[in-house]
Computed example of a mutant assay.
Amino acid sequence: MQRKIMVVTAAYGYDTVRNAGGQTAMLPVIAGAGADGVEIRREMFTDAELSALPTLASAIEIFDLLACYSAPQPLFLENGTLNPQLPALLQEAQTLRALWLKVSLGHFIDATPFDTLRDWLESSGMALVVENDQTPCGRLEPMQRFNAACQQQALPISLTFDMGNWLWVGDSPEESARQLSSSVGYVHVKAATAHNDSYRAVPPDRADPRWLELLEHLPGDVPRGIEFPLEGADLTAVTRRYVELLRKE
């Protein structure tokens, strides 16, 4: 079976997407590049766009694309309780007919809220993936603890492995892959290079071989999302180049 390649709308840059007319305007570019799907970013919506999710869902279907939905929200609040916005976010993902909702981990303390979380997931019928973000909550140790608790409680949650974010929090991407790969359900593909006092995302073939080699240590049968900058005069051609690269790597 051919590996699924998703394109994150934010890869085109907020200004480019907004000037083009919003995330809907990127669908023909993504479909024309031969990608399988699109990652829709909640933070890029205007209020009017957020209220028109059924229209966006229909447009995604017209372009024969799969969808996933990313919300810039933590699963757990600072006191370790579940984010009360999660049911609404799951409903938005369902309205979008997304494959899954993606959130960050937040402040995971223990498995006490898991029964409630299980009920929320079952009632929504929506899958959930949890990403390592660029905060201390996204470090390897809390991600490992959360993943182990999910396994022990048979909670059906998989991980989004963001290849570059580990550098922002001072962890090894390779060690993180060794520890977490069996639970990864989605890979955010990007390389990261030092930039001033931090890092910046770059395409994996424009950095050292480390990043393409890292893909070999991650599941080959899960979707890969392009989250590095896609720039150029012909965005469809630029996108197609990386869709084809990530299909074969």
Rank of each mutant, 00 (worst) to 15 (best):
S104A: 12
H195R: 06
S51F: 04
H217A: 13
D36P: 10
L66F: 11
C68I: 13
C137A: 13
P204R: 01
A57R: 00
L140A: 08
S176A: 15
L245C: 09
L27P: 06
M26S: 09
N165L: 01
L65G: 07
S58E: 14
A111Y: 05
L89E: 12
N83T: 08
A20D: 01
V243L: 06
L82N: 07
S182E: 12
F161W: 08
A148L: 13
A237Q: 14
N132A: 10
L77Y: 04
P28I: 11
R206I: 07
N165I: 01
Q151R: 14
Q151N: 06
Q2P: 15
E78Q: 14
E43P: 02
D64E: 14
Y69K: 03
V243I: 06
D133T: 13
S182T: 13
Q94D: 11
Q144L: 15
W120S: 05
E216R: 15
A237P: 02
D221F: 07
Q94R: 15
L218E: 03
R206L: 14
R97G: 00
A149D: 08
V8P: 00
A201H: 01
D36E: 13
D119F: 02
L235G: 06
Q23R: 00
M6K: 02
P136I: 08
D15G: 01
Q94A: 14
F108G: 04
L121C: 03
A177H: 08
V238A: 11
L159D: 03
A11L: 02
W211D: 03
T24A: 15
A25F: 14
K102Q: 14
W211Y: 03
L117M: 04
A71P: 08
V130K: 00
W166T: 04
L155W: 07
A201Q: 01
P72W: 04
G125V: 03
A233Q: 15
S198C: 09
G225Y: 12
V129A: 11
Y199A: 02
E175S: 07
A71N: 05
G220Q: 15
L246A: 10
D115P: 01
L77S: 08
V17T: 12
A35H: 09
W211F: 03
N19G: 00
V29F: 10
L155Y: 05
V29K: 08
A194Q: 13
G220E: 13
P136S: 04
E231H: 13
D133I: 11
D221K: 11
W168L: 12
L53W: 09
Q152M: 05
Q144H: 04
A194E: 13
Q2I: 11
P142F: 04
G37H: 05
L82K: 09
R3W: 08
V29L: 12
D133A: 13
N79M: 01
L96Y: 09
L50N: 11
P54R: 07
V38H: 06
S123M: 06
H217T: 09
C150V: 06
F228G: 03
L121K: 06
L128V: 01
G37R: 04
S172M: 12
T9Q: 10
N132K: 08
Q152W: 00
V222S: 10
L96F: 05
P173C: 07
E49P: 09
